[in-house]
Design a binder for these strands. Structure first.
Length: 124
DNA sequence: CGCTTGACCGGAA
DNA sequence: ATTCCGGCCAAGC
């Protein structure tokens, strides 16, 4: 059986992914959710909900995980209490913030041999 | 065991 | 640009 994919399992995967994120790079919750090899949900729809699980995982992420490199699909930091702090950390890593926003595809990091770059074109 | 909240996403008003 | 709504799942109370 298998199973399981308990929260521990999923969280581990999320943390593992985030830990691989190099400096100056960022990943979105949805990106992680879609990249994970064994998502909790089969595929009823999209990774929309899975992204939320990623957020939960981040909430419990240990100090080994650069949670500050994880941002939302909007190219901005999440609505967390230390959002400003996260911004500092990110810009300190060489990220170019524009209006509190960054070029997602520009700094988006993707794991090699997993998925292809989203190549999402921004629409102002 | 049930309701509320959440570090989300995407689309529509 | 902002605000609201629906969706999906898990953790917390």
């Amino acid at each position: 059986m298998t199973i399981s994919w308990t929260k521990e399992s999923y969280f581990e995967q999320v943390w593992s992914f985030v830990r691989q994120v190099p400096e100056g790079k960022v990943v979105t919750y949805g990106q992680i959710a879609q990249t994970l090899p064994d998502p909790p949900v089969p595929d009823t729809g999209e990774m929309v909900s899975a992204a939320r699980l990623v957020g939960s995982a981040m909430a419990a992420s240990p100090a080994d995980v650069p949670w500050h490199r994880v941002i939302n699909a909007q190219g901005r930091v999440s609505n967390r209490a230390d959002a400003a702090k996260q911004l500092e950390l990110l810009e300190a890593e060489g990220l170019c913030f524009v209006h509190g926003r960054i070029d997602l595809p520009e700094h988006l990091w993707h794991d090699t041999n997993q998925i292809a770059p989203p190549k999402q074109h921004q629409l102002f």
